[in-house]
């Protein structure tokens, strides 16, 4: 029971990070209908940017760990957003009217480029930082196993919840959100009615990247290690989360993320960690085959 509770906490933490990445997939898919395959690598890149900034601030400017992390997080959001803005401009914008697989192939190329770009510039090996904020709250004690909840985990879940609420508000209530939903329904009509489609799509990519950067920084904080091949598997899992929650739906993405995080940690606990990725990939295949609209999505009607 204690172990189950502990894995529940770990799963929700991991799931929150997947959820934050999944929002980026789901928003881009919603607005231009493409699978942004490079998004996982954008997440990895953001973790690297945060890592470098953190080292820069603590080693060269002598800041304490906590303010340095906050500054690194915010700066990483800005720089990753710039990256995704440039990526959209270079790799996807011209392809909106092309044949349907073109954006996906371009995104695969971009993903390959980003992973190898980081490998070339930063080396292929693990980069680990010393652990930060290790205080924990003991939830149960005296049993066979002490269940603990660390401050970091509380922070991660709280940040995810707050960001989900904020972006839910943005999409539902602000002019930007209205423009996004208009482009989602019919980009040509939205353009005729005076919505700047290019700007709206670019902003969607920027927001997605900023959220991925939050996820990347929190991932670095929680697990303390990142490497250049870390974009692929978390990326596919976050995409699984987006699909499971219903692609195009913001709360669905976070729900899907939580489910994938829980499935992965529980599988690792009770069936061994060798095949825990198989569990996530199987969920992806099964969802797409049997339930392509996911838990909270709308059914996808193919138009001629």
């Amino acid at each position: 029971m204690e172990i189950f509770l502990q894995q529940l906490i770990n799963g929700v933490t991991l799931g929150s990070i997947y959820g934050l990445i999944a929002i980026g997939y789901t928003m881009v898919f919603g607005i231009i209908g493409m699978v942004n395959f490079a998004h996982g690598d954008v997440f990895m890149l953001s973790a690297f940017i945060a890592l470098l900034l953190l080292l820069l601030l603590t080693q060269m400017l002598g800041l304490a760990a906590a303010p340095a992390f906050v500054v690194a997080l915010v700066a990483s959001m800005a720089l990753t957003a710039l990256w995704n803005f440039a990526i959209e401009r270079v790799a996807y914008r011209r392809l909106r009217g092309s044949f349907r697989l073109a954006p996906l192939i371009s995104a695969i190329g971009m993903s390959t480029f980003l992973a190898n770009f980081v490998t070339v510039t930063q080396g292929p090996n693990n980069k680990s930082i010393p652990p930060m904020w290790d205080q924990v709250i003991a939830i149960t004690s005296g049993g066979a196993y002490d269940v603990t909840l660390s401050y970091k985990q509380i922070l991660i879940v709280a940040v995810t919840g707050a960001l989900l609420a904020a972006f839910w508000f943005v999409v539902q209530k602000t002019p930007l959100g209205r423009a996004q939903r208009a482009c989602e329904q019919d980009a040509k009509m939205a353009a005729l009615l005076g919505v700047d489609v290019n700007r709206t799509v670019a902003l969607t990519f920027v927001i997605g990247a900023a959220l991925a950067a939050v996820a990347g920084s929190l991932y670095l904080l929680q697990y303390g290690v990142v490497k250049s091949s870390d974009g692929f598997v978390p990326g596919v899992k976050a995409f699984t989360a987006a699909v499971l929650g219903g692609i195009g739906s913001l709360p669905g993405a976070v729900l899907g993320g939580l489910l994938i995080g829980l499935i992965e940690t529980m599988w690792g606990q009770y069936f061994g960690s060798d095949y825990k990725d198989v569990a996530a990939f199987s969920v992806l295949a099964i969802t797409l085959i049997f339930m392509p609209s996911g838990l909270m999505g709308r059914p996808d009607v193919e138009k001629v």
Binding site: M34, V35, R100, L101, L104, V236, F239, D274, Y275, D277, V278, F281, S282, L284, A285, L288, I289, P292, D300, E302
Partner: peptide, 28 residues
């Protein structure tokens, strides 16, 4: 067989998932 009725990009992602499953099985 099970995936061919999916639309193009979903099909691509599922083949990727299957390939990763095959590789993980080969490793373990």
């Amino acid at each position: 067989f099970p995936i061919l009725r999916l639309r193009g990009d979903y099909l691509a992602i599922v083949t990727l998932a299957f390939a990763e499953i095959v590789r993980i099985v080969l490793i373990n």
